[in-house]
Design a protein around this nucleic acid. Sequence first.
DNA 1: ACCTGAACACCGTTCAAGT
DNA 2: ACCTGAACACCGTTCAAGT
Lengths: 195, 195
Amino acid sequence: MAHRRDDVVACALGLLDRYGLGDLSMRRIAAELDVRPSALYHHFPDKQTLLGAVADRLLALGYHPAPAAEWREGVRAVCRSFRDAMLAYPDGAELVATVRGFGLGARAPYDDLVAVLAAAGLDDEAAAIAATTLLHYVLGHTLHEQTALQAAAAGAVPDTASLPSSRFEDGLALVVAGVGSAQSSSRSTVPPVRQ
Amino acid sequence: MAHRRDDVVACALGLLDRYGLGDLSMRRIAAELDVRPSALYHHFPDKQTLLGAVADRLLALGYHPAPAAEWREGVRAVCRSFRDAMLAYPDGAELVATVRGFGLGARAPYDDLVAVLAAAGLDDEAAAIAATTLLHYVLGHTLHEQTALQAAAAGAVPDTASLPSSRFEDGLALVVAGVGSAQSSSRSTVPPVRQ
DNA sequence: ACCTGAACACCGTTCAAGT
DNA sequence: ACCTGAACACCGTTCAAGT
């Protein structure tokens, strides 16, 4: 049959979409590809690495932040798109969180945030701190929101986290405000950019 | 042998401490208690519920925030203690994150934050938003930090997240600054408390 | 109330061997 | 290069039955 690495990732992402992370086993992926489980180990050293590739693909597919003229809007656009990409698949946030401390998968959002913040006048260290803080908030919130969403969908609990989407923006605004005050103190030579 | 629910939780927490979350299986807990695996289902309906109890115990043991006179310091004390409690056990953050969207386990930190923020003059909704935002940041950061720490301990990667502890305080300061600006706009009738 | 015995339907991973 | 066959050492969970 001669499957490539990408076929395996695509297949795994399809299984994630249909059955969730709990049912995403090496044996199920192999069965879906009509192959013995051991064949997968020709393409990936272990399951962790395979899941890492699935997380990367998930973000590559869903992470497309809208361009923005102003830095605050740019930061919000990155965070929103990062969140939307994870929400597009069941257990998407858990997958991204699980995989190697999301060091690899979230590279693009991280780099984009650092670029936006640097353009806004933050120095390298302040931009790095602000970027990781924003991503930690987004991941934490999305993890929480998605498990609550899925619990509600399974009919478990009425609603504990409640009002999911609006609260994300409210919390994000809080962190952005904090970054804004860091900007005020860090920006000295460079004025805020418009373009 | 007549074990109680609490014995099972204590045993599970000991196994977590020694071997990590990956080796915390129902069968291993049962073996440690010198009991058949099925006996555990007399005390807990499933593994998820057992892990929830372990997370609760972990936080009950490690979460003891220092009292503070000023609200910013009070917020920092809660967040630090929440983080320290999770860092005290291998995979502590992952456990807390996994368990029911940390809706139950993090009740005490959440309530404490809301109380501190309400005393600082935030209205109910602003306090709720700020509290969840802070906890999401802390969980996201600690999750990231702990997996990086453990990867480094296992000799996998030199260091990608780097400078773990100081960055936590820097990011926390950022979010606290954001909460501060929310406080400025929300506080109208009540002045900031000193006690 | 607390537990055993026995089973069911699964896991991730390794490794010699095939083409 | 890509895969099979077969095994190893595990999983969570159920359920009748024992005391």
